[in-house]
C-alpha cells in the first residue's frame, strides 16, 4: 500500500485521530493523536495488507530552545515528539508514526506529558518506552513496569531534554 492510499484509509477509519502527515519527508510520517494511538497501532499490526509486526524503535525528541535569547526565533513551538518506527517482516515495508505532546502536562513543569503505552501491541515497546521515560521524560500510561532503565533509580531529571542541567554532585561524585 503506497503512502497516500494508506493515509487515506487511515483517515477514513480513524477520522480526526489522524492529526497530520508529511508524505514528502525523507521517511514519510503520519501524526496520530495520543488518545487514538493504541487503536491505530492495533490496526497497523493486524490488518492483513499492512502487517506492521515489528516495532523497530521508539524515540523521544525534545523541541525546546533552552537559550532565552534564541527562543523567540526558534522555528518551532516548544513540544515533545514521540516517534515510532515500524516495519513489517512479511511485507517488508516501513512506516513512521509521530505523537506530538506538550513538554509538560498542562504546562506545569515536572508533570510528565502522557501518551498511552503500546507495550500491549508490541513487546519491544516495553523496554523502549522505559528508555524514553528515563531519558526524555514521557509518561507511558498503562505500561506494565515504568521505571528507569539506563540511569540509576534515584537519578533526578531527564537527560535528553534540551533544558536538562547536569547535577553538580551525585552520591559524592563531582558532576562538573
Amino acid at each position: 500500500m503506497s503512502g497516500p492510499t494508506l493515509l487515506q484509509s487511515l483517515q477514513k477509519r480513524f477520522g480526526d485521530r489522524i492529526t497530520g502527515a508529511s508524505l514528502e519527508a525523507l521517511d514519510p510520517w503520519i501524526e496520530v493523536a495520543p488518545e487514538g494511538l493504541v487503536e491505530v497501532c492495533q490496526y497497523l499490526k493486524h490488518d492483513p495488507n499492512l502487517r506492521f509486526d515489528m516495532l523497530n524503535c521508539i524515540s523521544g525528541v525534545d523541541y525546546c530552545e533552552p537559550d532565552p535569547k534564541k527562543a523567540a526565533k526558534a522555528p518551532f513551538q516548544p513540544h515533545m515528539e514521540v516517534v515510532y518506527h515500524l516495519s513489517s517482516t512479511v511485507k517488508k515495508h516501513t512506516l513512521v508514526l509521530k505523537v506530538m505532546l506538550p513538554r509538560w502536562q498542562d504546562d506545569v513543569p515536572g508533570n510528565l506529558p502522557e501518551v498511552p503505552s503500546v507495550a500491549g501491541v508490541w513487546r519491544t515497546a516495553d523496554w523502549h518506552e522505559r528508555e524514553v521515560y528515563d531519558l526524555s521524560g514521557v509518561n507511558f500510561v498503562g505500561h506494565p513496569d515504568l521505571r528507569r532503565i539506563l540511569c540509576p533509580e534515584d537519578w533526578v531529571g531527564y537527560p535528553l531534554r534540551k533544558d536538562y542541567e547536569m547535577p553538580l554532585e551525585y552520591h559524592g561524585i563531582r558532576g562538573r
Binding site: C57, V61, D62, P75, V83, H85, R123, T124, W127
Partner: peptide, 27 residues
C-alpha cells in the same frame, strides 16, 4: 542497528538516536 538523525539545519544534529539490536535481543 538503527540510527535516527534529526537536524534543524545546522551542522550539529538536533537529535542523534541509536536503536540497538542487542537491547531488543536482551529483552
Amino acid at each position: 542497528m538503527g540510527f535516527y538523525l534529526v537536524s534543524d539545519g545546522g551542522s550539529i544534529p538536533w537529535r542523534a538516536r541509536a536503536r540497538s539490536s542487542s537491547f531488543c535481543n536482551l529483552s
